[in-house]
Design a protein around this nucleic acid. Structure first.
Length: 118
DNA sequence: ATAATGACGTCGG
DNA sequence: TCCGACGCCATTA
């Protein structure tokens, strides 16, 4: 049987962990698919992306982004509105606004002294 | 079992 | 900066 091991919330355990991290990302900051995978020490960027596409609608999905800072295809306007509202660092490129990963990327550590950037 | 697909990532040109 | 080729890995066809 194609078992998915649904957790208490009714979704696969792995997806549940991904969503848990996504909810942890502070406003104005973002995390990449790859970073979340490493942080979980399980799966890879594509698995995180899959989990988000299937179950991520209930969490701040706009804070989970690609490493190159490209806005989520198909939801660019929605994402942009959130970024502006949260003050997420953006960058202007010829093709349009992109995330300024250098400043927006969050490593998973809380602000309490554990910041590695900036 | 093999091939194609996807909310990815890195590298070379 | 932009674009294509490859690598990666679970799911689908």
């Amino acid at each position: 049987m194609s078992d998915e091991n649904p957790g208490p919330a009714g979704l696969p355990e792995y997806a549940e962990r991904v969503l848990e991290v996504a909810e942890r990302i502070p406003p104005g900051r973002v995390m990449t698919y790859g970073d979340i995978a490493e942080w979980l020490e399980e799966g890879g960027p594509r698995q995180v992306g899959r989990a988000m596409s299937l179950y991520g609608r209930a969490v701040p999905w706009w804070r989970v982004v690609r490493s190159d800072g490209v806005l989520l295809p198909g939801a660019e306007q929605r994402a942009l509105a959130h970024y502006r509202a949260e003050g997420t660092p953006l960058r202007d490129s010829a093709a349009g606004p992109r995330l300024d990963m250098r400043r927006a990327r969050w490593d998973g550590s809380d602000g309490g002294g554990g910041r590695l950037h900036d």
